[in-house]
């Protein structure tokens, strides 16, 4: 029976908790509110979007409003009203304090609203937000992510071959200037994708794959893919030492990959390594 009483007590506490929170929120110390916001983010990181959205709604700090707007974007049912409200909150966060950390994240998500939430997407509006971030906050991690999202819009747009080459060169220059390792990796991987998919040249693709590899690939499956790509492109381009090196890394690290037999055959087909002079 004690277990049943325990449940009744827990249920009563759960019912009373929101009231308790709202009573305290007006006077609670800053640290306590921040801890709850952090908890709300943690819930969002675990895909508990509804719970985190409700938690953000109980606070009025800038960070809570940011969290509220971002989680509002994926609440079900998805409505134009929710999108508009999220945009309004994000814009107000930028207007209130245009240079702070919250404003940078808000600008990034304004771009994402136009890029992946609106139907149909408004890619020029998205590109404008991302360009502004890149220009105003160089070297900021979110601005460097914006550089990747901007490249996605511009490089996959249906444009002429000449225009694509011009855009490609612009983003190559941008990639060289990135300071965040993950952004350097992802923009270089994107440039390699585009070089291969639109036939801009195997040598260009190899260069960007190697730059991405140098920046550090995060996931094992992606690492295997990149090492095979580098090995294959280097073999086709006659850069046998690079091919040998990357085939070797792949064979050492990925002992269960179904491509091993083919990689072994391609490795064996390479001309013998030059013997260094004594």
């Amino acid at each position: 029976m004690s277990a049943r009483y325990g449940r009744v007590v827990r249920a009563s506490l759960l019912l009373a908790l929101p009231m308790l929170v709202s009573t305290l929120s007006a006077s609670e110390p800053m640290e306590a509110r921040d801890a709850e916001v952090v908890h709300a983010w943690e819930r969002a990181s675990l895909s508990l979007f509804k719970e985190s959205h409700r938690a953000f709604a109980t606070h009025r700090s800038r960070e809570s409003r940011l969290g509220y707007a971002i989680t509002l974007l994926i609440q079900q049912p998805k409505t134009a009203g929710n999108l508009d409200e999220a945009v309004r909150i994000l814009e107000s966060l930028i207007i209130d304090i245009p240079t702070g950390e919250v404003a940078v994240v808000a600008r990034f998500h304004l771009g994402r609203v136009e890029q992946i939430h609106r139907s149909p997407p408004n890619l020029s509006a998205a590109a404008a937000h991302f360009s502004k971030l890149v220009a105003e906050h160089p070297a900021h991690p979110w601005a460097e992510q914006a550089a990747i999202k901007l490249a996605l819009i511009e490089l996959y747009a249906p444009v002429s071959a000449d225009e694509l080459r011009t855009r490609f060169e612009n983003h190559r220059r941008a990639a060289a200037g990135l300071v965040t390792a993950s952004a350097r990796r992802d923009l270089n991987l994107l440039l390699a994708d585009v070089a291969l998919r639109f036939g801009l040249g195997d040598a260009l693709a190899l260069e960007h794959l190697m730059a991405a590899d140098l920046a550090g690939i995060a996931r094992p499956t992606q690492q295997a893919r990149v090492w095979v790509q580098i090995g294959e492109l280097a073999r086709l381009l006659g850069r046998t030492e690079i091919a040998r090196d990357h085939y070797g890394k792949f064979l050492t690290a990925f002992t269960r990959d179904v491509r091993r037999r083919m990689v072994l055959e391609h490795l064996a087909s390479l001309p013998p390594a030059a013997i260094p002079a004594p």
Partner: peptide
């Protein structure tokens, strides 16, 4: 993923 990334970044 956008939400998760924002959340991870905030944490």
């Amino acid at each position: 993923q956008d939400v998760i990334i924002a959340a991870l970044s905030a944490s």
